[in-house]
Nucleic acid binder design. Structure first.
Lengths: 231, 231
DNA sequence: CTGTCAAGTTGACGGTGTCAAGTGAATGCT
DNA sequence: AGCATTCACTTGACACCGTCAACTTGACAG
């Protein structure tokens, strides 16, 4: 803390921006909460006076958003890597969903700041998250496995995954399964099977009544063969 | 603001608590954000000095939680009313889910405070929400339509519903369908059909590959008859 | 009339985000 | 070489926040 700093030469002002972002990121990582990210704390850690932060960020919220977005392209990379390993678009979609959940749980502070807060409009983090899932969904539609408007289908998938991880993050004291992956897997299966079925069923159909459960049973038998689901 | 107040007689101290809660609730409703709920604002509106709030609430967060919980039993009533109108347990479950979503969108501030924030443990609002959905799910399991551990199944449904409404609340600027009910209906269908199907399919099955899409198509035809879905 | 105790107030402390004005060194211009 | 400009940053303040210790007020009991 309080590292010495020599004033930047003219034209090198952008260096301070990076230093501030670095200090803020470290602060976030060490404390595990965004409340610790005060302008005074990040300024002191950067070795600079408090109002200097305003030279590069219009206010605290912008700094917070910028530092949280810093980790966001890791999500894109992880998704592309894991999803690219398989050909089946539906399997790729489920891998995207799993990567999404893993990412959120790995960066709970950033995820909360960007997706679980009253963002005036729509946060860039949100549109990025959605974009990846929507693309993977569109591939499934092109392959004929899913039907309908890909964006709409993807919103449903996104809702399910976001709900899952945001509850895990915001309600850590709840009586969850001991292994969060169990919940995540369940939600992925529910969402994947649900959209595949829902996009075929008439719009005003409701979930199965007893007389139709038999149809589900019959269909399930054709699924009997275990398929690897390593995501 | 600044209403006149006569000091309560001994034994009537509890009256102030109600007055504070009322003022806080009004403040929340008028401003639409919990940031406006400062101790000074609620104290002034109650016609009392700021530290008097501490006579009835240990800190600001406790007051915030208490005032947000005030609206929570409305959720219970609404669920019981709407779900009790139908016999089919699966239809009752979908009605519960719809009531849940409507309630969250009707009380976005309260919902955010109680369910989308770093609650040290698990918020009482969360366990109440889950309880209702879990009970409705258990009824479906008893009826043989759903299978497995009701609590686990309910967590998936809860995730889907919470994800849906929490995204609508936190990302109002996103490019949602013009009618939020459209998204909610879609998610309910996805979640309901998905759990009904997922609880029959082997645990390591993934969503349908092309060769299995035919099975879904065949099943969907048995669903052809439109069923009323007025929730 | 006096003592007691609950109910509520006063005044302060340390912390926060934010802004207007000032400083000081490096650079470009003549 | 010397002056003016401009960039990078600091100083000092403001208003507001949650919170606490100490004080005051008023009703009742004896």
């Amino acid at each position: 803390m309080g590292a010495k700093r020599t004033k930047a030469r003219p034209g090198e002002g952008e260096k301070l921006r990076e230093e501030i972002l670095g200090a803020a990121e470290a602060l976030l990582g060490e404390t595990g909460t965004d409340e610790a990210l005060t302008l005074r704390a990040v300024a002191q850690r950067t070795g600079v006076s408090t109002p200097s932060v305003y030279l590069h960020f219009p206010n605290r919220d912008a700094l917070l958003e910028a530092v949280c977005l810093r980790v966001w392209d890791e999500l894109a990379h992880r998704m592309r890597d894991r999803a690219g390993e398989v050909d089946d678009p539906m399997r790729a979609l489920s891998r995207c969903a799993r990567v999404y959940a893993r990412f959120a749980l790995d960066h709970p502070v950033q995820y909360r700041v960007l997706l679980m807060r009253p963002s005036g409009g729509s946060s860039p983090g949100a549109v990025a998250c959605f974009r990846y899932l929507a693309d993977a969904t569109a591939a499934c539609v092109r392959a004929g496995i899913l039907r309908g408007e890909p964006e709409i289908l993807a919103m449903g998938l996104w809702s399910a995954m976001h709900g899952c991880v945001s509850l895990l993050i915001a309600q850590p004291g709840f009586d969850w399964p001991e292994e969060p992956e169990a919940l995540i897997d369940g939600v992925i299966r529910m969402a994947g099977l649900g959209t595949a079925l829902a996009c075929r069923v008439p719009r005003d159909a409701i979930p199965p009544s007893p007389e139709l459960a038999a149809g589900l049973d019959e269909l399930a038998t054709t699924w009997a063969g275990p398929r690897d689901f390593t995501g």
